[in-house]
């Protein structure tokens, strides 16, 4: 396979994952601002902070309103991370690697781009926001379904999956990082409105507000939530789950290519820090330090993949 093709697949799926994550984040913010909030501006700020784009937002908008935030995150062409920008670039990448994709995957991505370009072509009133976010989620499920259902399980597939899980690991780690103060077990917060709102925000932004309740029969507290987000191998957005998938896909590539794999070494190192331990030892290490290091490790694994598989010359 061409190095450029591998890169195109990887970035295409990073883009699709990012669009989905952004939609999820807005959904969480919208839900809380609407139903729970006494201070919507601060909740919307929290959404922007979680997306790690505070500076870029404040440079372009003067107030934290639902309109501004959804504009910025969903359809602002000047924001390279807006859903519209990211979907366009994912579709450009899909065109670039067209010959590596099945018709089903290509058509799904092309349609996603057509549907969302149309949907995000105008300002979205609050009343339409839920349907818009639903469409983003649906389109993204369509692409994933086509990928699962039609693609050969070979190196092409592995690079798609690597893009998905590197992006997802980064996203989950950043959400934990931005909110780590709310996730530290601290008696000061217990029972306050503050931590409940924060926790719901966090769980909703990773679509886990229901699965958490099912998976974790125990208390609704900071340590449990943190453990779920970082260590739970059942939860498809946890760091442990992502690290496991990154390793698996790199193993498959190593077997197919038979070459020495520095990326696999990096991924195994990342994985070993996240599995076979309990949350207490992470709190001992320092949650903030742990997460900062994880973000660095994920990025390093990503760039090792890019280099090893010659995405660019």
């Amino acid at each position: 396979m061409l190095g450029k093709t591998a890169g195109g697949l990887y970035w295409m799926f990073r883009g699709l994952e990012r669009a989905e994550n952004t939609a999820r984040l807005i959904e969480a913010g919208f839900r809380i601002a609407l139903t729970r909030s006494t201070d919507p501006a601060s909740d919307w700020r929290s959404v922007i902070v979680t997306s790690a784009q505070q500076a870029a937002f404040e440079a372009r908008y003067d107030a934290y309103t639902s309109q501004n935030v959804s504009n910025f995150l969903l359809r602002d062409p000047m924001n390279p991370s807006s859903v519209l920008s990211v979907i366009k670039s994912a579709r450009d990448n899909a065109r670039l690697v067209r010959t590596a994709l099945t018709t089903e995957v290509w058509v799904a991505v092309n349609e996603t781009w057509m549907v969302l370009t149309d949907l995000l072509g105008h300002t979205i009133p609050d009343a339409e926001l839920p349907q818009t976010l639903e469409a983003i989620r649906q389109q993204s499920a369509l692409v994933r379904g086509a990928l699962y259902g039609t693609m050969l399980r070979n190196d092409v597939y592995n690079f798609c999956r690597l893009g998905t899980f590197v992006e997802r690991a980064d996203s989950t780690a950043r959400i934990v990082d931005v909110k780590y103060h709310a996730l530290l077990p601290s008696p000061a917060y217990v029972g306050s409105r503050m931590d409940n709102v924060q926790w719901e925000m966090i769980l909703r932004s990773v679509s886990a507000h229901r699965s958490f309740r099912h998976a974790v029969q125990d208390d609704y507290n900071a340590a449990n939530i943190t453990e779920f987000l970082i260590l739970d191998p059942r939860f498809p957005r946890s760091l442990a789950f992502c690290a496991q998938r990154i390793t698996e896909n790199l193993e498959a590539l190593q077997i197919e290519y038979g070459d020495e794999s520095p990326s696999l070494n990096a991924a195994r190192a990342l994985q070993s820090r996240i599995t076979d331990r309990d949350i207490a030892s992470i709190f001992d290490e320092g949650l903030h330090e742990f997460i900062s290091q994880t973000i660095i490790d994920v990025a390093a694994t990503g760039s090792t993949i890019e280099k090893q598989y010659r995405f660019t010359s």
Partner: peptide, 15 residues
């Protein structure tokens, strides 16, 4: 940019 000269031939960058 996927192509370059190598060993007197044209070569393509693969993974």
């Amino acid at each position: 940019h996927d192509l370059r000269i190598l060993d007197g031939r044209i070569a393509v960058r693969t993974t």
